[in-house]
Design a protein around this nucleic acid. Sequence first.
RNA 1: GGCCCCAUCGUCUAGUCAGGCCUAGGACACCAGGUUUUCAUCCUGGCAACGGGGGUUCGAAUCCCCCUGGGGUCACCA
Length: 503
Amino acid sequence: MWVASAWQKMTDTRPVRVRFAPSPTGRLHIGGARTALFNWALARSLGGAFILRVEDTDTERNSEESLHSILESLRWLGLDWDEGPEANGEFGPYFQTQRMANYQAAIDRGLSEGWLYRCFASAEEIGELVAEHRANKRSGRWEGPYRDLPVAEAEARAAAGEEFVLRFRVPMGQDVVIKDHIRGDVNFRSDEVEDWVAVRTGGMPTYNFCCAIDDADMQISHVIRGEEHLVNTPKQVLLAEALGVAVPDFAHVPLILGEDGKKLSKRTGDTALGDYIDKGYPADALFNFLALLGFSIDDKTTVFSREELVQHFDLKRISKGGALFDIDKLHWICGEYIRHMSVAHLTDAVLPSLRSAGLVSEPLVGDDSVTDLNVIGSRAWLERLVAAMQERLGLLNELPEKAAFLFSEGVELDKKAAKAVANEQAIAVLSHLATAFESADVFPPADWSAWVNEQAAQLDVGMGKVMKPLRAALSGTLGGPELLDILTLLGKQRSVSRIRAVL
RNA sequence: GGCCCCAUCGUCUAGUCAGGCCUAGGACACCAGGUUUUCAUCCUGGCAACGGGGGUUCGAAUCCCCCUGGGGUCACCA
């Protein structure tokens, strides 16, 4: 039986070659990104090849722009491919529309061997057939009207110019067993598989047709893809069998679910990787999070690098059930990464958002030799700011909003801050501080905490009575970075003038 | 509805293949304390799960069956 031989082919020691096969009809979906990630991880962990193949047989919806953005997204995630667009490879071309010669050879063979036949039914006719079949609630497949049309007659009608598609003649009474690394054996009966369209009207082959042929031609060893493809697999396996080519190993990964528990879709939030790039999630963090969705290294490791994933990756550790996209956890992971980045690295990461918010210039003020923290917008000043804000950041893009008050000349007080400075005691404290700051030799005063303590003692008030109004006047709000950081970043002139502004 | 997949805390999961080490571990979220004279971070503690029913077994989260529940798919899209 073909099944046994197919499994033997799967378990031999051929080189590991996996592929991610997006169709360039939109941006890279979160689920696709994770599928790509798993493919990449398997290739890297086993020393195999990661191949990118563009499934562009839907010429109606393809776009150059989509392709470009998909490639960019993959690169951003750090998933480098060994063969594919913009890379070399001995199994190219890597665009299906450029592989027509291969498909044509298979088509010719299928027609002459009889496992492909011409079907003259319109899409509407077939639609009615399917609807009726489904309404009858019976099991088994629907039968098309042209399956048994004599070849001579079919050829004559085709020659007369009648339009047709090519359907795959699915054999009856056969068991199709799919060997899946995640699910074990999955059984289908060929009687349940309809005679699917292999070649469209006009001659363009379909996904199922190209996919199986390419996987064989490119010597793909493992097909790792989303679970929604599981029911397509018997079609592809049956085709490979008709062609007499090797059937790859399969691994159907569980779906990523939206908050409604259904396949993640635009309904339930952002579904494109690009959305998360734009929002300021660090690439390493998103990579980590995606890997965690349906995969685990062990019982307690949650934060890990690409290298660690590669080191521990194993298809057997991919879970079977769908996973809800947990935005809270993503957020937390991002915070983890941001907090653990070096200040220099984080500064680089945050620069684009500061630029687009118009807070820093391009190039930066001064050059790298500027170490004077009074030079606002310099690299040194920015790094100081980033260090002060680091543990308060959830996303890269939050910085402009949270740190805007450090860039401006003055500041507007929010409600609570306004209240904190609007009493006699606060006014007295602040005017004392303004004077003290002005006469200080160094700014901020050396040994800051001792200095503040002394001021509080002189004023005969508690520390809270000093810190709170000062913070309010300086930052316009009651939260935020440490006062010493604010003073440092603001500098003497701005600090004093902000205090004077509320007196 | 047919076919296929799945089923451990609210969420992501470990444990299931080789049944006892599981009075089920970790993480997120949440709650309560503590550190930080703000916020955030950090630390400590707490809450919280094997969907149900039958088997098999000395013993089942782990094996088998049924039920229930959820999901996927049923295009000349991929």
